Amino acid sequence: MKYRGEEIVHARASDVTKGIVYDRPYTQQQKNIREPTLPTITNYNEILLKLLAHENIASRMPIFENYDKQVQGRTIVEAGDADAGVLQPFNEEKYPEEIRNTGIALSLDQCPRYNKIDPYWGAVNAVVESVRNITAVGASPQAVTDCLCFGNPEKPEQMWDFTESVRGIADACQAIGLKEFPGASLPVISGNVSFYNESKSGAIPASPMISCLGNMTDVHHVVPKYFQQANSVIILVGERKNECGGSVYYQLFNELGANVPKPDLKTIATEIHAVNAAMQQKFILSAHDISDGGLAVAVAEMSFKNQLGVEINIPGDLATDKKLFGETGGFILEISNANLTAVQKIFQNQQVPIFILGKTSKEPRLKMQNCIDVTVVEAKQHWQNGLREKLL
């Protein structure tokens, strides 16, 4: 390549298009991380309300209300109203009629505290949670893009963070795949890397951020996040495990923990496909993924809009706080009694276990595990004002 007679670039096309391959030395960081011993919980109501008001869980409306969420009138589900935003990009007569109702869903996730424990599982969780968010609104995951922010790659320990995160993204994408193309990996179609993010106090935690793109044939079939009616069955997808490492619950006690959530990469694709299949048959009234704050927070958030209460009990022998606030991923699904058998059959066919937690209620109270009993109004106030009060 020349400019005004001067040679600017002299390289093979493959050298330009293939990208740069880093081959730097890396060394695993030695971390002395253990599970904490927490004080005995005597007031689970207080813990739930503190979690709902925490800046990592509370409503992001103070942020969302400061920018245009209705660009070109194509937004169907705004940011914050569901697990993913949904747009209708072809809603004009100039587009063919058969694609006008096509919807796209977008989500963005990262798990910074998980990465402090293990950058591999932090990256896996970022991919899986982003995909779950797309699935929760009724869309089918099609691709991801990433933004990878790390410290100094010239330092072997920080280069190790990077290599482990990339390995986690690759493994998660391969495990999830594309439903329409068996054997294919969920493609990473773009992204960027930012190195040297550090100060005198040290490098930032490994921070792989994952955005997932999904599609749906008809935006009018978006699945809402909020409970829709009383006396529905509440279903749990994803058995609870002792995985509070990196959780907001531990953060309340200034603890990090060691037991980071570890999604089962052998079964995650069938879980996603089973949820999507039930949604395609319009069996799911509402859906929400389980992430920050755990199952208790997810259920509480689903109650806010329509002021519906719940009565639930989580099966299993796990400690009560781990059941309620552990961040093992999964879904909370609302199903009518009439469709329960059909939904159970779908999940049985995919060999994905589900658990009946309880039911929704006209009485606007959150009753969980015989240890939480708060009004929906009080819970919602903590959630709505938690971040706003910290920004004042």
Rank of each mutant, 00 (worst) to 15 (best):
S130L: 08
N133Q: 14
N133C: 14
I134A: 10
T135H: 09
A136E: 08
A136G: 04
V137R: 06
G138S: 10
G138N: 13
G138M: 09
A139E: 12
P141S: 09
Q142E: 15
V144Y: 13
T145K: 06
D146G: 07
D146E: 07
D146M: 12
C149M: 13
C149E: 11
F150W: 10
F150G: 02
F150I: 08
G151R: 02
N152C: 12
P153M: 08
P153I: 13
E154C: 01
K155M: 12
P156S: 10
Q158M: 14
Q158A: 05
M159C: 07
W160L: 01
F162M: 15
F162D: 05
E164R: 15
E164H: 10
V166D: 11
D171H: 09
D171C: 03
C173R: 11
A175D: 04
A175Y: 05
A175G: 06
A175P: 01
I176W: 08
L178T: 00
L178G: 00
K179Q: 10
F181D: 02
P182C: 04
G183C: 07
A184W: 13
S185N: 11
S185D: 05
L186Y: 08
P187A: 14
I189K: 09
S190F: 15
N192I: 14
V193F: 15
F195Y: 14
Y196W: 05
Y196A: 09
Y196R: 07
N197P: 00
S199G: 12
S199K: 06
S201Y: 10
S201A: 13
A203C: 04
I204R: 12
I204D: 11
A206D: 09
S207Y: 13
S207M: 13
P208S: 12
P208K: 13
M209F: 01
C212H: 03
C212D: 02
L213C: 03
L213Q: 00
L213H: 06
G214E: 05
G214T: 05
G214I: 02
N215C: 03
T217D: 05
V219L: 07
V219Y: 15
V219G: 06
V219F: 15
H220R: 13
H220L: 03
H221D: 00
V223P: 00
V223Y: 03
V223G: 00
V223K: 00
P224A: 08
K225L: 15
K225Y: 09
Y226V: 00
Q228F: 02
Q229L: 03
A230P: 03
S232I: 07
I234D: 05
I235L: 14
I235N: 03
G238V: 04
G238R: 04
G238K: 01
G238H: 02
E239Y: 01
K241M: 06
K241N: 00
N242R: 12
N242W: 12
N242P: 01
E243Q: 13
C244H: 01
G246P: 12
S247R: 01
S247L: 10
Y249G: 01
Y250R: 09
Q251M: 13
L252P: 07
N254T: 11
N254V: 08
N254C: 11
